[in-house]
Amino acid sequence: MAYEFDWTVLITYKQLLIDGFMMTLKLSIIGIFFSFFIGIFVGLARVSNNFFLSLSGTYYVEFFRNIPLIVQMFFIYFSFTLTDAFPFLETFGNAIGVEHHNEFFSALIALITYTSTYVAEAIRAGIQSLPKGQMEAAKTIGMNYVQAMYHVVFPQALKMVWGPITSQFLNLIKNSSLAMTIGVAELTFQTQEIDSLTFRGFEAATAVTILYLFLTLATAYTMSLINRYALIKTQNNSGGTV
């Protein structure tokens, strides 16, 4: 039996695709935002001189990195009712137009904890790969640890690991698809929905693939814009600035 392509289903069911895309977008934007800042915090803790801080940072990274993301999502969703414990999540959820709060926030929190570990490791690698002389020079002109980090070390480290951090954000966008397993109606979920309604899974998958590609390209482009305009300028080998 031949497979007859019917692309019109995408138009008939375009609302599902739009809804799915918006859901993925919400998960991605909020997820990226929080994993970035939490990741920086944990990464700085890891490299700090304080034994307790660096040990705690190590715990955080190893714990949330080695447990599969889907397990983390299930654990939060099925063991707890988030909106009972944290009522503000319901208000927040309503504000961003999300209906099934428990599902959404369970997925979101798991995404954030998981991705932040990779951001933390990238930050740590960046700081540790910087020549020690930079921190030493900053100290010799009288800067304390915080000033040295803020003015000298961290800007350079961040610039260096901006590429790997971008990769992690793209991974987050892909990983958001796991939210469908606990019932979040994001893009991958919608592929299944359209397929179950129309048996036109191939067309749905194509559309969804294009949408994911669009999202990842847009994110990569935004990150490169931030790199160009907001991060420090460094020399490349031929003396030009990048």
């Binding site: 892909k174 698809s177 469908m180 191939f202 994911y212």
Partner: peptide, 25 residues
């Protein structure tokens, strides 16, 4: 580039559901 950009769970679904169709077509 295609398989790096796709979410893994999507690939898993589609191999399972689509492969028989693919071979059939």
């Amino acid at each position: 580039e295609l398989f790096r950009a796709l979410p893994h769970i999507m690939v898993i679904f589609w191999v399972f559901f689509a492969l028989p169709i693919f071979f059939g077509v």
